[in-house]
Amino acid sequence: MLNRLLLNHYEAAAVILSCIGLTNLLLQRNMIKKIIGLNIMDTAVYLFLAAKGYISGRTAPIYYLDANGEWVNQVQAYVNPVPAGLVLTGIVVSVSVTAFALALTLRLYEHYGTLNIDEALFLLEHKYELEYSSYNDDDELLYEFGVDNRDMIKAANEAASKSMNDKGGDEDHA
């Protein structure tokens, strides 16, 4: 088996790269690092396809002139052109998916202030307690500036509890 693996060492390297990417996807908590793991998996797929298309002793699939000035169009002259097209497709889709995922990650960071997926999930679960707890920093800052916003905070807290109660009531009706 080791002999066969050494013979197919490009494919073996592609498989190992793919597993490194999968490990990144599973174990990293940072969203950017997860996306990097996804890209490593993409790269492994390109390597695998390119290795499958190679035929030893042949040139790239672009027609060339032989000694008589004729275009060489024998199969025996060129490597397999299909994996090149597949890799092109893969690269384009990978770029698109990466850009979309990074944009979503940027929005996640704007909303939760963290790239860590565990912290974001924690903030999502404890949204109400954190949002409507009491003073937050901005309120204290305004108070320092001389704006009396204690009534405002009180009203906001009441509105929050009321909206929570309303939500509960809706669920009861449903």
């Binding site: 197919n8 030893s56 042949r58």
Partner: peptide, 15 residues
């Protein structure tokens, strides 16, 4: 991968 046909062989089923 160990069961795949050899690397760079012209008689592989992909060709």
């Amino acid at each position: 991968v160990a069961e795949l046909p050899s690397f760079g062989d012209a008689n592989n089923p992909v060709n």
